[in-house]
Computed example of a mutant assay.
Amino acid sequence: MLFDACPNPQVLDLVRRGWDRLGGLRTSTFSFVPGRARQSVAEHEQILGLFDAGAPASDVERAVRAHRLATLDAFLAHRHP
């Protein structure tokens, strides 16, 4: 829903490959960082709430970016306290 409407197949390919690479990071972060999974679910609920409320695309994008960065930050904080 967030990127499938993009008419550029090269951009879609880049997005899909990036998400695939982050999949391993997400799995390992949930294993190593207690509480991140629960926080992630809350962030997903917030993002879905933005969709339900008809929020502007820029607000949804910011929330999704913050969610992705929070997972990366949690992983890095665990590896390099």
Rank of each mutant, 00 (worst) to 15 (best):
M1R: 08
L2P: 01
F3I: 07
F3L: 06
F3Q: 05
A5I: 09
C6W: 01
C6S: 11
C6Y: 00
P7R: 11
P7K: 07
N8E: 13
P9V: 04
Q10M: 05
V11Q: 09
L12Q: 05
L12C: 04
D13H: 13
D13T: 07
L14N: 04
R17V: 08
R17S: 07
R17L: 04
R17K: 13
R17M: 04
W19S: 11
W19L: 14
D20P: 01
D20V: 08
R21F: 05
R21V: 10
R21S: 11
L22Q: 02
L22E: 05
L22Y: 08
L22S: 01
G23E: 12
G24T: 09
G24K: 06
G24V: 10
G24I: 05
L25Q: 02
R26H: 11
T27F: 12
T27K: 11
S28V: 11
S31G: 07
S31L: 12
F32Q: 14
F32Y: 13
V33L: 10
V33I: 10
P34Q: 14
P34V: 10
G35E: 12
G35K: 12
R36T: 12
R36D: 12
R36H: 01
R38V: 12
R38P: 01
R38M: 12
Q39A: 15
Q39T: 08
Q39I: 03
S40T: 10
S40V: 03
S40M: 06
S40Y: 15
S40K: 01
V41Q: 12
A42T: 08
A42R: 14
E43F: 02
E43H: 06
E43R: 10
H44P: 02
E45S: 13
I47N: 04
I47H: 04
I47Y: 04
L48K: 09
L48N: 06
L48I: 13
L48V: 11
L48D: 04
G49W: 00
G49K: 11
L50S: 06
D52Q: 15
A53E: 14
A53S: 15
G54T: 09
A55L: 04
A55N: 03
P56Q: 14
A57D: 06
A57T: 12
A57Q: 09
S58H: 13
D59Q: 14
V60I: 15
V60L: 06
V60C: 02
V60S: 01
R62I: 11
R62C: 13
R62S: 15
A63T: 07
A63D: 04
V64L: 05
V64K: 00
R65F: 13
R65Y: 12
R65W: 09
A66V: 10
A66R: 12
H67E: 04
R68E: 03
L69I: 08
L69W: 03
L69F: 04
A70S: 13
A70P: 00
T71E: 07
L72Y: 02
L72Q: 07
L72C: 05
D73V: 02
D73T: 05
D73R: 03
A74T: 01
A74E: 01
F75P: 00
L76N: 02
L76D: 02
H78T: 00
H78S: 02
R79K: 06
R79C: 06
H80R: 10
H80Y: 02
P81Y: 00
P81H: 03
